[in-house]
Design a binder for these strands. Structure first.
Lengths: 205, 205
DNA sequence: TAGATTGTTAATCGATTAACAATC
DNA sequence: TAGATTGTTAATCGATTAACAATC
């Protein structure tokens, strides 16, 4: 349950703190400080302390933060101290790649269903998942109580699919389609567009 | 050549404006307005006008913006009115997927070289590209004058590889490794981390 | 105790937005 | 001309940072 009114930009940094803590733990450390975290992340220590202060007091003056403890706290705040089942819509070029990607599973996001609307693809398999027709989405999403979608359909159909997903109770969309989606505020969308990212960098070249 | 001191966040929005213009053009439109763009992008029209004003005056009072003209201007500003050759380091699970992705090519970013350090992979092919040993990077990068890298190595080696790339003259890194890179300011890094993205969304679920 | 580092306040910095004169 | 929309200014809003008392 979101504590105060935490800015989205702060929430977006918490996963970075979390992964940095895991990294430090792997190095055998048990305690860290806002300064050490800041160095690793290219931020200021004040920002890290301020961000954490939205959620509670997790450190000790003079010594810093117990890594394992802070890690668990962040997992709790982010709701990632559990497994989330996710599904993918659009098994094209990109979708197929995403279905093969092991990083989701390795971090508690398990891909449990694939959908596409191309008759040729329906019934096909990617890994051990079968591609279902998009017409099966209402049933499967309800049965598996899915709330997180990965969207990898063409830009032209993304808005229509997103609307359908919202109607089916989806609350978070990781959107790989290069288009801004219009959805109700309760639905969160995160955009991943590597081409836009490259175009933003060539400006400086 | 960057005009004034344009905030990075503004530069980051230009690709979104560009792709929206392409979208509108595909719909047969020839003219648009800051208001129409704003609606499509979920921004305010004032922001769009302000952003564009960093670079010049591209519209006409009363009528708005000629789509094709503004598109060309933005391409010029972003330096994407040409083809860029890019290369990929790290041909694992994820790298392989990226190598197959056609979206780069389709938008003027041509993948021209693949590198990995696993002996088993060297000499192997992905599509019509051969995987080279990372030891060949200095030669290939110099020969092909490459300045844009896509980094898809494990988090543990990302920093070391990034430093090597910087030494070889790379100026832009699209980083898929879940770690913050420390590089000189002249080198631009863009981070893509779908797991962090999902973790930022589950906060709200 | 002395040194270190937190959590928090207040100041600063930067980005967004409202408003409107200019003008097509 | 009347209506529409730009480019820009100034106000507002929000995020970052510096500073420091509290305290381990």
């Amino acid at each position: 349950m979101p504590q105060k009114n935490v800015p989205a930009i702060v929430v977006g940094r918490l996963p970075l703190y979390l992964r940095t803590l895991q990294f430090l733990k792997n190095e055998g450390k048990r305690v860290t400080s806002s300064q050490e975290l800041a160095e690793r992340l290219g931020l200021t220590s004040a920002q890290i302390r301020k961000d954490l202060s939205y959620f509670g007091e997790f450190g000790k003056q003079g010594t810093g933060y117990a890594i394992e403890f802070l890690e668990e706290q962040l997992r709790g705040i982010l709701n990632v101290n559990r497994q989330w089942n996710v599904f993918l819509v659009g098994v094209g070029d990109l979708g197929r790649a995403l279905a093969h990607y092991r990083g989701f599973q390795a971090n508690g996001f398990r891909l449990v269903a694939l959908f596409d609307n191309a008759p040729k693809k329906i019934g096909g398999k990617v890994g051990d998942l079968t591609i279902h027709d998009t017409s099966a989405m209402p049933r499967v999403i309800a049965e598996k109580k899915l709330r997180i979608a990965i969207l990898a359909v063409p830009a032209e159909s993304a808005q229509a699919v997103a609307e359908q997903l919202v109607g089916l109770g989806v609350r978070a969309i990781l959107n790989y389609a290069p288009v801004t989606l219009s959805v109700p505020p309760k639905v969160k969308v995160y955009y991943i567009d590597p081409v836009a990212a490259l175009q933003g960098m060539t400006y400086y070249l």
